[in-house]
Amino acid sequence: MGGGEAVQLKEVGERSSSILSPVSSVSVLFYHQFLIKNLIRKDIKGRYSNSFLGYIWTVLEPALLSTVYYFLFIMIADDPDPLYPVWVIIGVIIWSCFGKVLQSTVTSLTRNASTIHLVYFPRIIFTYASVGSTIWITLMSSVVFIPLLIAYDIGISWQLLLVPVAIFLAAFNAVGLGLLLAPTNCINRDVEHLVRFIVRAGFFLSPVMWTWDMALKRGWASDVVIWNPMVFPITLARDGFLGKVTEFPVDGILISIGWGVAMWVIGSMVFNKFEHSAVKYL
């Protein structure tokens, strides 16, 4: 077949796994934006379908949780900070953003097995679509801050914009770990259960029920918790709510952002390298 070379033949199922993986995944997002938009819509509509209160649950859930923790806290330690309920509600919202992103990215391949078996597109799209819908729902639940700002007579300031920044950072800190673990979850669902435990345990190890200031008062405690990459986003959101730019130590900020970037690079590389062998297990 001498004339066979006239048409350029390309290998099917493009893949790249290099240090540039995170960059190429961003270009994939741009190229498939219509698909991602549709997947996010499916996810968000699905989460609250068949419920009377619908989206109100995004606000109601953290609010109710905070009430419970508030009572728990005044039972353990009397005389709390008057703003304590607000600290808890912010902690719950930011932490659940991290937890939901982590869980949905880890299960992004296993949940979409039927689609994966029928059509090829870069599977990282599933991961980013679930990140998108979680960020959207978290932003919706931040509406709860408006009545709180009025109730506590705190003015509206530009620093409130640090709250969505903190939400993005919380999601970003979860993405890399999720990408790293998603292929392994195809082979062994133990990963999924382990992640659920990490999210539950991390709830107590992160400043959800406590604050960075409380840790500072304990001296040594702050030296330990500063290594938790989620301390910074939660503190950032709390300070932003009060209308101040955070005074969180720079090394803590670097730990948090550094964790996010490093995990994102490693996670994207691992995901791109192993997604092809992982889908055979689905």
Binding site: V7, Q8, L9, K10, E11, V12, G13, E14, R15, S114, T115, I116, H117, L118, V119, Y120, H276, S277, V279, K280
Partner: peptide, 25 residues
């Protein structure tokens, strides 16, 4: 269609491929 990548060998194509299977995925 590019869904599974082969362990050995290669598969090439000259253009956009669509797989029609399991309608309504």
């Amino acid at each position: 269609a590019g869904i599974f990548s082969p362990d050995h060998g290669q598969c090439k194509s000259s253009g956009k491929i669509s797989l029609l299977a399991g309608l309504g995925t």
